[in-house]
């Protein structure tokens, strides 16, 4: 069975090009990808992760609100008793990235990261999981 990955866009920005590229690259590498679309609230994303039994949740935010929205989403996901790998992507400065990891985001990728690196990270996590 392929891993199930949610690609979600929390926050108000409507630019979904990057998220869609990530989604498509994942599909091309054999993952089953559920894309939620734009303007998702943390609780919407959490319920999606629950209903879809997501193995991985990838958050993508370009609006600059990642410091509030990513940890809030991670908190809600885990509050539901779920333990997916949570990855943050978007326009995230290095300092923020470090902080986000402390706040419960498993891996953070800054601007210009190739989707292939996201896939590598998922593979590494998959192997360590068993």
């Amino acid at each position: 069975m392929s891993l199930k990955v949610i690609v979600a866009k929390p926050g108000l920005d409507g630019h979904d090009r990057q998220a869609k590229i990530i989604a498509r690259t994942l599909k091309d590498h054999g993952y089953d990808v559920v894309y939620t679309g734009i303007r998702q609230t943390p609780s919407q994303i959490a319920q999606t992760a629950l209903q879809e039994s997501a193995d991985v949740v990838i958050l993508n935010c370009l609006s600059g609100a990642h410091m509030e929205l990513f940890p809030e989403t991670a908190r809600r996901v885990r509050e539901l008793g779920l333990a997916p790998l949570i990855i943050g992507t978007g326009v995230i400065p290095d300092d923020d990235a470090e902080e986000l990891v402390k706040m419960g985001i498993d891996i953070v990728f800054g601007p210009g990261t190739s989707p292939l690196r996201v896939i590598e990270a998922i593979k590494t996590w998959e192997q360590s999981r068993i």
Binding site: S2, K27, D28, D32, V33, Y35, T36, T41, Q47, T48
Partner: peptide, 17 residues
């Protein structure tokens, strides 16, 4: 690839939570 984009959910996403 054996992968897929599961794109139906997006049309109901506004009904959540």
């Amino acid at each position: 690839s054996g992968g897929s984009i599961l794109g139906d959910r997006i049309r109901l996403q506004h009904l959540f939570p």
